[in-house]
């Protein structure tokens, strides 16, 4: 499956903005991943060839960085932070709750193909610990007890055709508050949930 014209245009734009073709490799792989959520070998190869580079270094980058996926992923990639600040706030319980709900296979994918559960390291949102990344967005603080509701919201959004980002259109402003799902990266719309004993 060839890259979409918009992706090709984006890669060309990236290439033109950078001094060397090789520098465009990582941003271009990310642009290509934007299409399907992951990077099949043929896509890696296509990106490399567009830039006049060998596919091997592209494959190398695709496996080095945690945000690039060389295996299929679900509609939502959930990256739960396990680093110390989140750990201290109960991230292990959140992970367990997610596992119990999603029953992920060995690759972390739920049977319905909607979710991929990844365990990640610090995402830089410690005030909202425990938190996770949902595709482009940070969500927190999470509560193991309300994980089923959180997932239910995500499922409804996927059914409603609201694509990968939680905030379908950032320019349109923050998404409405839908219960326990909070968007910590929309800084100015965070509900005050922090002070708690």
């Amino acid at each position: 499956m060839a890259l979409a014209p918009e992706t090709i245009a984006e890669i060309e734009r990236i290439r033109a903005a950078l001094p060397e073709a090789r520098s465009a490799l990582l941003p271009s792989l990310k642009a290509a991943q934007g299409e399907r959520g992951w990077l099949p070998q043929e896509t890696i190869k296509e990106v490399a060839e567009m830039l006049g580079l060998d596919p091997n270094p592209a494959y190398m980058l695709a496996t080095f960085y945690t945000m690039l996926h060389t295996e299929p992923v679900g509609h939502y990639v959930l990256e739960v932070c396990r680093s110390l600040p989140c750990y201290l706030r109960g991230s292990d319980g959140v992970t367990e709750a997610l596992r119990a709900e999603l029953q992920p296979d060995e690759h972390g994918n739920s049977a319905d193909g909607l979710f991929s559960l990844k365990i990640g390291e610090c995402l830089g949102d410690c005030p909202h610990a425990p938190m996770m990344r949902v595709n482009d967005d940070f969500v927190g603080p999470l509560d193991a007890a309300t994980i089923p509701e959180t997932l239910a919201i995500l499922r409804r959004r996927a059914e409603g055709g609201r694509v990968r980002g939680l905030m379908a259109d950032p320019a349109a402003g923050p998404a409405p508050n839908e219960g326990p799902l909070t968007f910590s990266n929309a800084i100015q719309s965070l509900p005050l949930t922090r002070v708690r004993d």
Binding site: S23, A24, P57, L68
Partner: peptide
């Protein structure tokens, strides 16, 4: 794209250059 090591300044340069 997800790599703490890129905060090390020379690894950061390698990352921009498209190297490991």
């Amino acid at each position: 794209a997800g790599a703490y090591i890129c905060g090390e300044e020379t690894a950061l340069l390698e990352s921009i250059e498209g190297n490991r």
